[in-house]
Simulated assay, not measured.
Amino acid sequence: MKIETSSRLHLSLIDLNGSEGRVDGGIGITLKNPSLIMTCDETSSETKISYDDKLNFNTHVNDCNNKILDACTRMNEYLSVNKSYTFNIEQIYSVHQGLGLGTQLALSTARLIANLNDIELSTYELAEIVQRGGTSGIGVHSFDKGGLIIDGGHKRSVKKDFLPSSASKVSPPPLLARYDFPEEWNIILATPNTIQGASGDKEVNIFQEYTPIDMRDVEKISYLTLMKLMPAVIEKDIVSFGEAVNQIQQLGFKKIERNLQSNQINEIIGYMADNGIPAVGMSSFGPTCFGITDTNVKNMKKDLLDLMGDKSTVWITKGKNQGSIIRK
Rank of each mutant, 00 (worst) to 15 (best):
K155D: 12
I248K: 01
A232E: 03
K328P: 13
D41S: 14
Y78N: 12
N275G: 06
K301W: 06
M300A: 09
L175S: 06
I265F: 04
I138W: 03
I150G: 03
K255R: 13
M215N: 14
K318N: 15
T47V: 07
N205L: 09
P278T: 05
Q250L: 12
K2L: 14
R178N: 15
N76S: 10
V140A: 04
D201P: 05
V204Q: 08
D70V: 06
E257S: 10
Y210F: 15
L189R: 01
I113P: 00
I234K: 14
S262V: 07
D52C: 10
R22I: 10
D118R: 08
E20A: 08
A71C: 10
L79G: 06
L13N: 02
D161F: 11
Y78C: 08
K320F: 08
K67C: 09
Y210N: 11
Q250T: 13
Q322C: 11
W315D: 14
W315L: 06
H60Q: 14
K254D: 07
S157R: 09
C72P: 02
S45R: 13
E267N: 15
N117W: 05
E4M: 12
L121G: 10
I89Y: 00
Y124S: 09
E4I: 13
G152E: 14
I113T: 04
Q131Y: 06
F207Y: 15
F181C: 07
K83D: 14
N259Q: 13
V61P: 07
K32D: 11
N62T: 10
K311R: 13
R156H: 06
N321V: 05
E42L: 15
K160S: 13
E46R: 08
N65W: 01
E4D: 14
G26M: 02
G102L: 02
R258L: 14
E90S: 12
L126A: 09
M38H: 03
P192Y: 01
S35I: 09
I49S: 04
Y51I: 11
G200N: 09
L226M: 12
K320D: 06
F87N: 04
S7V: 02
R132W: 05
G252Q: 04
G319R: 00
G147C: 04
I256G: 08
I113G: 03
K328E: 15
K48Y: 06
R111N: 13
R216M: 07
C40S: 13
D303Q: 13
L99Q: 00
L163P: 03
I68E: 02
I138R: 00
V233H: 01
D306I: 11
C289A: 13
Q104F: 02
E125K: 15
Q131P: 03
T5M: 10
I188K: 00
P172Q: 04
D151S: 08
T47M: 05
L55E: 11
L16E: 01
D24Y: 06
S262R: 03
L175F: 10
S168D: 11
P231D: 11
L176D: 04
N321E: 07
L55P: 05
M1D: 07
L101A: 05
T288N: 08
Q104Y: 05
E243S: 11
G309L: 10
Y223R: 05
N76A: 10
K54G: 13
T295H: 14
